[in-house]
Amino acid sequence: MATVSLEQVRKVYPNGHVGVDDASFTIADGELLVLVGPSGCGKTTLLRMIAGLESMSSGTLRIDGRVVNDVAPKDRDIAMVFQNYALYPHMTVAQNLGFGLHLRGKPKEEIERRVRDAARLLELEHRLDARPAALSGGQRQRVALGRALVREPKVFLLDEPLSNLDARLRLSMRVEIARLHRRLNTTTLYVTHDQVEAMTLGERIVVIDGGTIQQIDTPMNLYDKPANLFVAGFLGSPAMNLLRGRLLRENGWQLILPDAALRIHPSSAQAAALEAWNGRDVALGIRPEDVQVVAPTDAVLEAKVEVIEPVGNEAFLNLRFADQAIVSRVSPQHMPAPCTTLPLAFAHGRLHFFDAESGKRIA
C-alpha cells in the first residue's frame, strides 16, 4: 500500500487546451478516493497521468513518497482496470489472470497461488477453465479486476470499470468492489461520471469540471454543503432545485423572482451571512426531499404537478411554479393526481445559498 500525492499537476495539449489545471490532492494509504465529473472534464486524463500513460505538463506526482514524474508506467507499481475488459479471447480465465505475472517472469508456483487467491476472492474458482466468450458481463469485469489483483500493486486505478454493465450488474459490482476494498485495504483511485457510484463507493470524492477541481470532501459533506453551483447541481438524483432571484430583507427574508416573491426562512447563521447579499442576486438551492407538501396556511408557494415518477419506495413530483421547474421527493402513499396544484414549503435549516455571479456558496 502507498499514498499518492499530486501537487499542482497540469496538462496542456499542443493546441493550448488545458485538460487538467493545477490538481492538488493526496490519496491516503488504503483509501478509496473517487474522482467524479461529467464527460470531458479531465478525470481520465488525470488518472492516465498517475498511471504514466499520459505525460504531465507541470507539477509533481509522488507514489509512496517517491517522485514518479519521469518513471515508466511499469516501474510505478500500479495496476489499472479499464472501461473495456481487454481480456484475451483465446485464453482461459486462469491464463488471463496470470498473463501479466508470466510476462514479469514470476515462478509458476507463485503465479498459481496468486491466481487461485484472486479467483477465490472474486468467486471465479469454478470458471478458471472458461474463456471470456462463455462469461457474463459481470464475470468478465471480475476477471479484469482479478488481473489487477494478482499483481499485488501499491495502487489500484479504476477507469469507469462498470460503465459497460447493465443497471442490475452495476449495483452488484459496486457492492463487490466495496467489499473487495475492505478486505484488501489497497490505495485506490476510482474514476466515474456516475454520481451514485461516487457517493456509494468513495470514502472521499474529488469533484472535477473543466479540468479544475471544484471540491474535495466526504460524500455527505458534498451533498449537505456543496461549495458551488456546479457541485450542487451535479451531486444528487434528482438534482438540487435552484431558484434565481434578488434577495431582500423586508419584514423577514424574501427571494424576489420575476413573477413572484417567496418568503424564506434561513437559519440564524445563514441570516448573518446573507446580510452582505441584501438587495443582490443569489441562487437558492433546495434538495427535492426538502420541498414538502404542507397545509395551505403554511405554504411558501403553490406549484402545479406536471409529471409524477413513481420509483417504488418513493416518488418524484415534477412541478411548475411560475416559470420555474421544481422537483419534490415524496412518499408513494401520498401521491397527488397530475395537474393538481399543491401548497409547498421548504424544510427549515435546509436551504442553500449561492452567489449568482460567481456560483460560490454563501457560508
Rank of each mutant, 00 (worst) to 15 (best):
R10H: 14
K11I: 09
H17E: 12
D21C: 12
D21M: 11
A23Y: 00
A23N: 04
S24D: 09
S24K: 05
I27V: 15
A28T: 05
P38A: 08
P38T: 11
S39H: 05
C41G: 09
M49C: 03
L53S: 10
S57H: 08
G59D: 10
T60P: 06
T60N: 15
I63S: 09
V68T: 09
P73D: 02
D75E: 14
V81W: 13
Y88N: 14
Y88F: 15
P89E: 13
H90V: 11
V93N: 12
Q95E: 15
N96A: 08
L97P: 12
L97K: 07
G100P: 02
E110D: 15
E112C: 07
D117W: 06
A118M: 12
R127H: 13
A130Q: 14
A134W: 01
G137A: 09
R142F: 15
R142P: 15
V143W: 14
A148T: 11
A148I: 10
V150L: 10
R151Y: 07
E152H: 00
L158T: 03
S163K: 03
R170A: 02
L171Y: 05
L171M: 11
I177E: 01
R179E: 15
L180G: 11
L180M: 15
R182T: 11
T187E: 00
L189R: 00
H193F: 02
D194N: 04
Q195H: 06
G202K: 10
G210H: 04
G211W: 03
G211E: 10
Q214K: 09
D217R: 04
N221I: 07
N221A: 13
L222Q: 01
D224E: 11
K225E: 10
A227C: 06
N228K: 09
L229M: 13
F230Q: 07
F230H: 09
L235E: 03
S237W: 02
L242Y: 03
L243N: 11
L248I: 06
L248V: 10
R249I: 03
E250G: 01
L255Q: 00
P258C: 13
P258E: 08
D259I: 02
I264D: 09
H265P: 00
Q270F: 00
A271Y: 01
G279T: 05
R280G: 06
P288F: 14
V291P: 07
E302I: 03
V307F: 13
V311D: 06
L317P: 02
A322N: 06
I326T: 10
S328R: 03
R329M: 12
A337F: 03
C339I: 06
C339S: 14
C339E: 12
T341K: 13
L342A: 05
A347Q: 15
A347Y: 05
H348W: 07
G349E: 02
L351V: 07
F353L: 08
D355M: 15
A356Y: 10
R361F: 04
A363K: 06
